[in-house]
Structure formats: structure tokens, C-alpha cells
């Protein structure tokens, strides 16, 4: 009896818990990201290495943000199954997307609270802390560093929506 528990039921239980809580955490995070993105939609962002109509009296400044997101056991399990047959691994894609958006948002939020209204030369960098990502093992977390230079711009906003002309990318469907 105990062997059956240990061998089948317990791992299944963990997978079930991971599935539900993982889904909940992910959807809550996505909602909060969309809300925060809307609030700061007037911040002009670009990954170009140039300033658009900058205010020369205000000193530009570098901002960085880091985020580590775990990939829950259920998604990790799905991912390793998918790995056998190949193809798109949606669950990993979504986690990476959330991590990138979160890191970008944090850079934008820091810039905003320091009084800037634009960020130039945004860069995203993947960090492999677990050391598993390129060893054909199951990477169980993703870490992203985002950085960019905040400055103050005189560039106009979109007249109708009052948002930046280049808004942030929305979530992957």
C-alpha cells in the first residue's frame, strides 16, 4: 500500500498541486502586468541607441532590474514530455515572456518614479543561474536582467490615446 502511495499517488498529487497553483500564480501575474503596463503607457520606450527630443537639462541615468521566475513542476513535466517529440513548448515560452515583461516593467517603473518619462536602449539578458539551460537538462527557472537609460523627452504622445507611440508588446497569445 505504502509503495503505491510513494510510487504513483504522491507524484501525481504534486503535479496536481503544481498545475493549479502554477496556473493561479501565472494568471495573477499576467493580470498585474497588464494593469501596470496600462498605468505607465505614456512612458516612451525604445531599444534604439538614441534619444528622441531629449531635455538637455536633465541627466540621463541607467536603471536595471532582475527577476527570477520558477517553472512549476507541472509545466516542467509537460516541457520534458514535449522535448521527446519536439515542437513548441508553450509553457516555457509563457514563463519567459512573463519574466521579460516583468523585468522591463520594473525598469520602466523605476524610471517613472525617478521622474523620467522615456527609456532608451532597453536591453534584455538571460542569466543561467541553475546552469542547466544548456546542458540538455530541465531548466527549472528563468532569470532575466533588463536595463535601459532613462531620460526626459519632449516627444509628443499619441493625441487620441495619450499613450506612447511605441507601446510595450502585449502578451503572447
Amino acid at each position: 500500500m505504502l509503495e503505491i502511495w510513494a510510487a504513483y499517488i504522491f507524484p501525481l498529487l504534486i503535479l496536481a498541486v503544481a498545475f493549479f497553483s502554477g496556473n493561479m500564480i501565472a494568471s495573477r501575474h499576467e493580470k498585474s502586468l497588464s494593469a501596470r503596463q496600462l498605468i505607465l503607457a505614456h512612458i516612451r520606450t525604445t531599444d534604439l541607441n538614441r534619444f528622441f527630443e531629449p531635455d538637455h537639462r536633465i541627466q540621463a541615468q541607467l536603471f536595471t532590474a532582475e527577476i527570477t521566475l520558477g517553472i512549476d513542476h507541472f509545466r516542467g513535466f509537460l516541457g520534458s514530455l514535449k522535448n521527446i517529440f519536439g515542437g513548441q513548448i508553450r509553457s516555457y515560452q509563457k514563463t519567459l515572456d512573463r519574466a521579460r515583461r516583468e523585468a522591463l516593467m520594473q525598469v520602466i517603473e523605476q524610471s517613472h518614479s525617478a521622474g523620467y518619462n522615456a527609456v532608451a536602449n532597453l536591453r534584455l539578458e538571460f542569466v543561467d543561474i541553475s546552469g542547466k539551460a544548456n546542458m540538455a537538462k530541465r531548466a527549472n527557472m528563468v532569470t532575466i536582467i533588463a536595463y535601459g537609460t532613462a531620460y526626459t523627452t519632449h516627444a509628443p504622445l499619441n493625441k487620441e490615446t495619450q499613450t506612447a507611440i511605441s507601446p510595450l508588446p502585449a502578451a503572447i497569445r
Binding site: T68, G70, H73, I129
Partner: peptide, 17 residues
């Protein structure tokens, strides 16, 4: 343990910061 359910792993975020 936190990784079972996913979500932010604050310890690693701090490590990187």
C-alpha cells in the same frame, strides 16, 4: 520548494541584485 508551484524565486532575484 517554491519551485513546485512556480512564481518568483526571491532568493535568486536578490542573489542577482
Amino acid at each position: 520548494f517554491k519551485n513546485i508551484v512556480g512564481g518568483e524565486l526571491k532568493g535568486y532575484t536578490e542573489l542577482l541584485t
